[in-house]
Amino acid sequence: KTVKFDGLQFDFDNPEKALKFALEVAKQKGAEVHIHGDEIKIE
């Protein structure tokens, strides 16, 4: 899975870790997590 935000991109082999990371970043930024297939966007 790939996590994208602020023009940055982070690749994870483990989908659970990717989602956990995305949710943590979103919480800190006050943003929402959007999942599109293998891509997780924080907006």
Rank of each mutant, 00 (worst) to 15 (best):
K1N: 08
K1P: 09
K1W: 15
K1E: 01
K1T: 14
T2L: 07
T2F: 08
T2W: 09
T2Y: 09
T2Q: 06
T2G: 03
T2I: 12
V3Q: 03
V3W: 04
V3T: 03
V3N: 01
V3G: 02
V3I: 04
V3Y: 05
K4G: 04
K4V: 12
K4N: 06
K4Q: 06
K4T: 13
F5T: 00
F5R: 01
F5E: 01
F5L: 05
F5N: 01
D6L: 11
D6M: 13
D6P: 02
G7C: 14
G7I: 06
G7W: 06
G7D: 05
G7L: 06
G7K: 05
G7S: 06
L8Q: 09
L8I: 07
Q9P: 03
Q9E: 10
Q9D: 04
Q9T: 13
Q9H: 08
F10S: 00
D11R: 13
D11G: 07
D11H: 15
D11P: 07
F12T: 02
F12K: 02
F12R: 02
F12C: 11
F12E: 03
F12D: 02
D13Q: 07
D13F: 05
D13H: 05
D13I: 08
D13W: 06
D13V: 08
N14R: 05
N14M: 05
N14G: 05
N14A: 06
N14W: 02
P15M: 14
P15A: 13
P15L: 14
P15K: 06
P15V: 12
E16V: 10
E16R: 09
K17V: 12
K17R: 10
A18V: 00
A18Y: 05
A18I: 01
A18G: 00
A18P: 00
A18S: 01
A18T: 00
L19P: 03
L19E: 02
L19W: 12
K20G: 04
K20N: 07
F21E: 03
F21V: 04
F21R: 00
F21P: 02
F21Y: 08
F21L: 04
F21T: 03
A22E: 02
A22G: 01
A22W: 06
A22T: 01
A22D: 00
A22F: 04
A22Q: 01
A22R: 00
L23H: 08
L23F: 11
L23Q: 09
L23T: 06
L23E: 07
L23A: 07
E24P: 00
V25L: 13
V25K: 00
V25C: 15
V25W: 11
V25F: 11
V25T: 05
A26D: 02
K27I: 10
K27V: 08
K27S: 09
K27L: 11
Q28C: 15
Q28H: 09
Q28G: 06
Q28K: 11
Q28W: 13
Q28A: 12
K29F: 15
K29G: 05
K29Y: 14
K29V: 14
G30F: 06
G30Q: 07
G30D: 06
G30C: 15
A31Y: 14
A31L: 14
A31E: 04
A31S: 07
A31M: 14
E32A: 13
E32Y: 14
E32T: 14
E32S: 13
E32R: 13
E32F: 14
E32V: 14
V33P: 02
V33R: 00
V33E: 01
H34A: 08
H34N: 06
H34P: 01
H34F: 13
H34T: 11
H34G: 05
H34D: 04
H34Y: 13
I35R: 03
I35V: 10
I35T: 04
I35S: 04
H36T: 10
H36M: 12
H36G: 06
H36I: 12
H36A: 09
H36C: 15
H36S: 11
H36R: 10
G37H: 06
G37A: 07
G37F: 09
G37N: 07
D38E: 07
D38Q: 09
D38I: 08
D38V: 08
D38M: 10
D38P: 06
D38L: 09
D38H: 10
E39T: 12
E39D: 07
E39G: 03
I40W: 04
I40V: 04
I40G: 03
K41V: 14
K41R: 14
K41F: 15
K41W: 15
K41Q: 11
K41E: 09
K41A: 10
I42N: 01
I42R: 02
I42E: 02
I42F: 05
E43T: 12
E43Y: 14
